[in-house]
């Protein structure tokens, strides 16, 4: 078996030897390649029609998943079993706050965006305080806080039917040179995270923390600050996604964050980020988000029902992780 036909990102990177390394495909390329294969299969079925439309839609919708996925990736990278369950709550709350503060006026866009992001940031700080003061794992802290924030979003956003300001809606649905603005925002954030992970003290500490929390603490790295930053980053990215989603879909709704919880974990893990922590793959999130969207599109063009689409999505997640192997359990 050569490195090239190895079925999965994780096993390829685990087994590669110096002799082979030169030919090894980067981990993030696997989901991207799979997405390309799915796109070609869809186009063959449709006789090559609508290639541009499918791709444009895929990139736009993937952008929102990438934004939340980046935050979830940082949390998952910080250690085994760490997951942010408060992402849907942050999305719903930020979307509602942004729409209410902007109140359809172009002049209030910046204020609304800031208010929404500030709310999301406070959620991140609250999550961190729960983790630290109650000494509970992030998954329980974010579960409890998300229940409360979800309630706040429901009470605050009930009967809220405010359209986004025209300029903001235009931005969210608009394109520059054929690429949707949302995708450009997501790309910029991906670059930022890539840079932070490889070049900054924060990024190096996060990876060290995920690989061995005890060693990272004993080595004197700023573990506490890194955990706080991670918690805030995840909540803020989810909040930004909520604001953009509200602008994109013509207003906020109470359950608009629901599908992003499982999706954010799925795109992170399929993208090659280690669930055991310590290894992040920001570029893989793009491939995974495109893959999941294109699979649903393909099954749609094949005329299959919603049930089959759900089963296919699930089978792909299980297959990817089963072949890729865990080596470390959560």
């Amino acid at each position: 078996m050569t490195a090239d036909d190895m079925p999965s990102p994780a096993s390829a990177s685990m087994r590669d030897t110096p002799r082979r390394r030169r030919r090894t495909v980067p981990v993030w390329a696997w989901p991207l390649g799979a997405a390309a294969v799915i796109l070609v299969m869809t186009l063959i079925h449709s006789g090559g029609q609508g290639a541009g439309d499918i791709l444009a839609a895929a990139v736009t919708f993937s952008a929102l998943f990438v934004i939340v996925g980046l935050g979830q990736m940082l949390v998952i990278t910080s250690g085994p079993g760490n997951v942010d369950l408060s992402i849907p709550a942050a999305i719903s709350l930020s979307g509602a706050i942004a729409m209410k503060v902007m109140d359809g006026a172009n002049g209030m866009i910046a204020v609304g965006l800031l208010a929404a992001l500030a709310a999301a940031m406070s959620l991140g700080v609250a999550n961190y305080l729960l983790i630290r003061l109650l000494r509970i794992p992030p998954i329980i802290a974010t579960l409890s806080s998300s229940l409360i924030v979800q309630s706040i979003a429901i009470a605050y956003g009930r009967g809220l039917k405010i359209k986004p300001p025209p300029a903001f809606a235009d931005f969210c649905t608009g394109r520059i040179l054929g690429v949707s603005n949302l995708a450009l925002v997501a790309a910029a954030l991906t670059a930022l995270v890539l840079l932070a992970l490889s070049r900054t003290l924060y990024g190096r500490t996060l990876l060290a923390l995920g690989q061995n929390a005890r060693a990272a603490r004993l080595a004197g790295t700023p573990v506490t600050r890194t955990r706080l930053t991670t918690s805030i980053a995840s909540a803020t990215l989810a909040g930004l996604c909520g604001v953009l989603l509200a602008g994109f879909s013509g207003g906020s709704s109470l359950n608009m964050g629901e599908e992003y919880l499982l999706a954010s974990i799925a795109v992170t893990v399929i993208g090659g980020t280690s669930v055991a922590g310590g290894r992040a793959e920001p570029l893989g999130i793009w491939g995974a988000a495109l893959l999941l969207f294109l699979i649903v599109t393909m099954l749609n063009t094949f005329g299959l029902s919603a049930g089959v689409r759900l089963i296919a999505t699930g089978l792909i997640i299980v297959t990817v992780i089963a072949i890729g192997g865990g080596s470390k359990r959560v």
Partner: peptide, 8 residues
């Protein structure tokens, strides 16, 4: 396969 249960 020693898999992470959360993802499975």
């Amino acid at each position: 396969r020693d898999l992470p249960s959360i993802v499975v």
